[in-house]
């Protein structure tokens, strides 16, 4: 009973404090546009062991970049991501950290926005440039103009990772880690473990993971 009383008293304080904060957040979120998803796509595309096809896409800074430009790297972290998806946004800082840690080891991130900006204006080429500047992306962030690349890879959502080795063979597909909402709560670093496996000359295990994400926007 003593315990209960203590808990109750505490909750009063909690409630008193939380009330205003919650209201403020609720207010703020009211005028924020909701994220958009379209239909799920089939999982046709690359499997682990397949050779990843080359592409030539416009980077957010206007330069053209090909996967073949990354020949000679030990690996490439092809990352389908976008501006608007709450899950993609939650991984932006982690993408920066991963790139700064692994690019120098020979595994740069190569990000691609697969969404149709006519369906989701927040994912336009112009907005990509703005976002890249805001977040200080050091990695390339390419626009899949005409949406020709993501179907070849079989990307279905953002974020969606395809880890390629030095020969551009797919070695891992899936999530970055097991906790989108809280980087400090991550227990399994799927992508980093997969890179470690390549470094050790072994096969990533798991080589395929699933995650919640925003489906890719198409008309």
């Amino acid at each position: 009973m003593k315990n209960l009383l203590f808990a109750l008293t505490c909750i009063v304080f909690f409630a008193a404090c939380k009330d205003n904060a919650t209201n403020a957040t609720a207010e703020k979120s009211a005028d924020k546009p909701k994220a958009e998803l379209v239909s799920n796509k089939s999982t046709d595309g690359l499997n682990v062991g397949d050779k990843a096809p080359d592409f030539n896409l416009k980077n957010h800074d206007g330069t053209m970049i090909s996967l073949s430009d990354y020949a000679g790297k030990k690996g490439t972290i092809v990352t389908f991501t976008c501006n608007h998806c709450p899950y993609a946004v939650m991984y932006e800082d982690r993408l920066n950290d991963l790139h700064s840690k692994y690019a120098s080891m020979g595994y740069p991130i190569l990000a691609i926005n697969p969404n149709d900006p006519e369906v989701k204006p927040a994912d336009s080429f112009e907005k990509m440039g703005e976002r890249a500047k805001e977040k200080g992306f050091e990695f390339a962030y390419l626009f899949d103009d005409g949406q020709k690349v993501y179907p070849q890879y079989g990307a279905t959502k953002t974020p969606h990772i395809f880890l390629l080795d030095n020969e551009h063979t797919v070695r891992y597909i899936g999530a970055i880690d097991d906790n989108p909402q809280d980087a400090s709560g991550v227990k399994k670093k799927f992508l980093e473990d997969a890179i470690a496996a390549l470094e050790a000359g072994t096969d990533p295990d798991p080589n395929y993971t699933k995650a919640i994400g925003c489906s890719i926007k198409t008309k």
Binding site: N40, T156, D178, I212, G213, S215
Partner: peptide, 21 residues
């Protein structure tokens, strides 16, 4: 449950994680 990789297949193996389903 944030570790979606551990439970998505328990809902359906066809599901890759995009919503709605």
């Amino acid at each position: 449950d944030s570790d979606a990789n551990s439970w998505i297949d328990k809902v359906d193996t066809n599901w890759d994680g995009a919503i709605p389903i």
